[in-house]
Design a binder for these strands. Structure first.
Lengths: 128, 128
DNA sequence: CTCTATGCAAAAACTTTGCAGGGAT
DNA sequence: ATCCCTGCAAAGTTTTTGCATAGAG
C-alpha cells in the first residue's frame, strides 16, 4: 500500500496516528489544516504538528499559509500549484502550471493568490 | 509626492504613522513584517496591523506568510512574484514571471517557494 | 468640532514544548 | 528492552480587540 511505501523509505516509524494522518492527506486531494484534520480524526494538536513537521523534513508533505492565518499541509507533489482565493479562502490545485523555471533556483511550490472563478463570476457576471 | 497620491484617492486619512509606514514600504523594495518595521520606526503593533489591514482593503499593499510564520506586507505591484527560500527564509522579488494567466481566475499575487540561488549553490556547488 | 487613529494592555488564535505514560521494532 | 511517539497541559509567538486619549480634516 502507498502509505507504507511513503514511510518505509524514510527513517521514521509508521504509527497508527501517522497512518491515519497520511490516509487523510491522500484522500483529501487538497491541503488540510489542523482544524480540518481534527474534524475528521481524533488527534491531539501536538501530535499533528509534530508529525507534519517530521513529514516535511522527510519531504513527504509540504505546507503553506492561507490568508485565513492557518497553515495547510498536503502530500508533496512536485510542480503542482495551489490557488488560494482571497475572497472565499478556497484552495484549489492547479495542474496546468507545471514547468515554471528560474535559472539557479529550485522551485518546490507555487502559490497563486487572487479571485477564483466562482467569486470572479459573482462579482463580474458574464452578462455585464 | 507618491505617498499623498496613494492615499488621497482612497477614503482614509493620511496620518503621520501611515506616512512613515508607506515611506518604509516604498524604500524597502521588499515585503516587511511587523518585526522589520519596528526595528526601523517606533510604531505600536496595533497601529501597524490596523494600518496594513486598512491598506490591504484599499489595495495599497498586499501580504503573505513566509515559512517563518510571520506575515509580510508590501506595496501592491501587479504581476510581480515573490520567491521565498525555504532554507534561509530570504524573500526576493521576481520580475521575470509576469504574465501568468488562468482562464476565469484573477491572479493577484504569485509566491514561489524553494531554494534560492545562494543556498542552492552552497549545497550543490557547481564544481561537484 | 467631530470622527477616526493611536498606544497600551489584555485577549485571542495558532503552534510549540515539557513531561509522563504507551507503542513499535 | 529500548527508543520513539502520544496526549495533556502549559508556554510561546504573532495578531487582534477594548478603551481612553490624541490628531486629522
Amino acid at each position: 500500500m502507498q502509505i507504507e511505501k511513503l514511510i518505509e523509505e524514510k527513517k521514521i516509524k509508521l504509527t497508527s496516528a501517522r497512518k491515519e494522518l497520511l490516509e487523510l492527506f491522500l484522500k483529501a486531494q487538497r491541503p488540510l489544516s489542523y482544524e480540518d484534520v481534527k474534524d475528521k480524526i481524533k488527534m491531539d494538536k501536538a501530535t499533528f504538528y509534530r508529525n507534519v513537521s517530521k513529514f516535511e523534513e522527510e519531504s513527504i508533505v509540504n505546507s503553506f499559509e492561507s490568508n485565513d492565518k492557518k497553515r495547510y499541509y498536503g502530500i508533496y507533489v512536485s510542480a503542482h500549484a495551489h490557488f488560494i482565493c482571497q475572497v472565499c479562502s478556497s484552495i484549489e490545485c492547479v495542474k496546468s502550471i507545471t514547468n515554471m523555471q528560474l535559472e539557479g533556483y529550485k522551485i518546490q511550490d507555487v502559490i497563486l493568490k487572487g479571485v477564483c472563478k466562482q467569486c470572479n463570476q459573482r462579482n463580474n457576471p458574464p452578462s455585464s
